[in-house]
Design a binder for these strands. Sequence first.
DNA 1: TTGTACGCGTTATCAT
DNA 2: ATGATAACGCGTACAA
Lengths: 341, 341
Amino acid sequence: MVTIYDIAAKAGVSAMTVSRVINNTGKISEKTRAKVKRVMEEMNYVPNQTARSLVLQQTKLLFLLITDITNPFYTTLARGAEDAAKKHGYRLLFGNSDESLEKEADYVTTILTTRVDGVLLAPAGDPSLPHLESLRKHNVPFVLLDREVPGMDCDIVLGDSKEGAKRLVEHLAEKGHRQIALVNGSSSISSARLRLQGYKEGLKLNELPFREEFVFETSFGQLGDLSDMTAWLERLDPMPTAILTGNNVLAVEAMRLLRAKGLRVPEDISIVCFDDLGPYSDVDPFLTVAAQQAYQFGYMGMGMLIDRIGERDGSSPWKKVVLPAELLVRRSVKDISSEEG
Amino acid sequence: MVTIYDIAAKAGVSAMTVSRVINNTGKISEKTRAKVKRVMEEMNYVPNQTARSLVLQQTKLLFLLITDITNPFYTTLARGAEDAAKKHGYRLLFGNSDESLEKEADYVTTILTTRVDGVLLAPAGDPSLPHLESLRKHNVPFVLLDREVPGMDCDIVLGDSKEGAKRLVEHLAEKGHRQIALVNGSSSISSARLRLQGYKEGLKLNELPFREEFVFETSFGQLGDLSDMTAWLERLDPMPTAILTGNNVLAVEAMRLLRAKGLRVPEDISIVCFDDLGPYSDVDPFLTVAAQQAYQFGYMGMGMLIDRIGERDGSSPWKKVVLPAELLVRRSVKDISSEEG
DNA sequence: TTGTACGCGTTATCAT
DNA sequence: ATGATAACGCGTACAA
C-alpha cells in the first residue's frame, strides 16, 4: 500500500508536508505543493481514511437505519438523506431492520463498533427504547424518523399522521362512504397509534360510529400470508365500502387480498392509504393517498443530525419537526353518495 | 472513550489479555476471562473497529453500489447481498449511482479511501471501465452485477437477458401480436444490447420483420419527462399492439404514458417487461414479465466476492454466473390471435 | 497463561 | 514554510 511516507520520500519532503497538501492546511510554497501533487498522481496515492479516523476521532461516516428497504417511502427518504450527507462531506452507511427488533439490535452493535459519527433511524417501535438508550450512553448523536419512542427525548422528524388519517376519512365520507375499515400497523408504533386516532376523529367529525371490529392491526411490513386479514374481512357485517390502510405496503397487501377475492378497486370497494407509492403511483388503480414528504424526511433529518454533531458540548433543545401530509386524490375511491346507504 | 487499557487497568491485567478475551484467541484462564468480561460489561466497553482495521489491514466492510435504489430489482438484490454479507461477518455499505457516471466516480473515491475489503457493483455502463480499472489497480476485489463491461475480465453475475427477451417476444407472438415495439435502456449497457438481440431473435423466430423505428432507446432509470417517448409512439404507423420494455422501471413509465393518452392495458395495448416489480407485481394491470432472480444476484454475487477476498495470492479463474429469467404470465397481454391482423 | 514492545497510517503540537 | 515527535486504539511477535 502506498502511504504518506512513500510520497514524502519520493518528493523529498516530510510526511507532514504531504499531509498539509492533502488537507489544504498550513502554509505551503506553490513549488512543493506542485511537486507533492505530482508524486501523488504518479504513485496513485489514496489517503487511508481508517488511519485518519483513528487520530481524528471521527469517521465522517453516518448511518441510516430504515425498517423496510422495499418501501418507496424509505427509499425516497434514503435519497434525501444521502444527498444531504454528501453535501456536508459525509459518507453514508445503510441498514435495513425489516421491522425486526433483533435485526435492529444487531445494527446498533455495528453502529457502536464502527464508531460512526451519527445515526438517522426509523425505530422498529416503542420497544426500541433500550437501543436508543444504548446510543445515548455511548454519546452517538441520533435523529429519529417517522416514529416517536415514549421515554426518549431527542431530535425527530415526524409526519402529521393524525391529520393525514383524518383527511382521508373525510374524503371518503364526502364520497358517501359510511362503512370505513382501517388496516393498520402495530399499536406499539407511534405513527400507527396516531393514524388510528385520526381515523377515529375523522369518523366522529362525520358522525359515523367507531366500531372496534372494523380495525385490523398487523405489521407495517410485507405480510406474506394474508389468511388472518382475509378471515377478518369475511367476518365483517356489513362489508366496508372503503378501506383505509396505515401505510402504502398495507395498501398493496390489501389490494392483493381483494384481487384474490375477485373484488375490483374502486368499483366494488374503495381504498386509500397513508404514504405515496413512489414510482408506482401511476399504476392502476391509481391510489388516492395522504402523501408524506419522504425526501424531506431524509433531507431535513440528516441536516438536523449534522447540526447536532457540529455542536460542541452545549446541547441546544431537542428539535421536533412535523411535516404535513398532502391529500392526493386519484381514482381509487368510488363516489357512492347518490346510492342507497 | 473507554479503551482496552481502561479495561485492563480496572481488571488488573494487561491490554493484551483483554484483547485475547475479546477475540477468543490464545489461552486464558476462566477466572481472568470472567473478570475481564465483567469489567467490560460494567464500563460499557465497545471495541474500536477503526483501530482494529488499521492494524489488521482489513475493515470487514463491503460495498454495494447499485444504479437505482427505487428499483425493486436492486432493493431485492440488496437484501440478498446483505444477508450473505452478514452470514460471513461483514458489514455492508450501500451506494446509489442513479445511472450516473459522475456519481459512480464519487463512490469509487469513497470506496478507495474507506479501504473496504471488497465491492459488489452494477456498473452504469461500458464507460465505467476506468472506474473498474481504478479498483483493480488498487487491489480492491470486486464482482460485477447484471452488466458486463467490455475490456474487463472479472467475476460477474448476469441474467440471461437475450433468452428472457426472446421468450417475451414469443409469448406476445403466440397471443397474436405482430406489431411489437421495444422501449430499451442505453446501448452502452450490455444487458440492453442483449435484450435488443433477444428481441430481434424472437421476431425472426416468428417471421416478423425487425423495424428500426419500433425501437426506442432511453435510460433505464426514471425518465421524468415523457415527451420524447410520446413523440416516438405517435410517429409509429401502424401503432404497435404490444410493447416490450427493457426493464421494470421503463414498464411503469410506459404505463404512465399510456394512461396519459387514455389507452388501457391490456384492452387497448399489451405490455410486458424484463424484471419483476417486487411487491407491486400484484397491482393492476398485473404485468407479465421475465422475472430475474434478484435476491440470488445479490446473494451469489456476495458469496463470490467473499470467496475472492479469502483467496491468498493465487487467483482462481474468473467466474461468470448466468441466472435464467423466468416468464411469469399474468394479465397485461391481450389475446388477439383471433382478430384481424 | 500472561505481559512487553512495536507498528498500522495519519495528524496535532511544537520547533526550527 | 517545513520537520520531528508523539499519539489515536488495537493486535502480532516474542518473551517471560
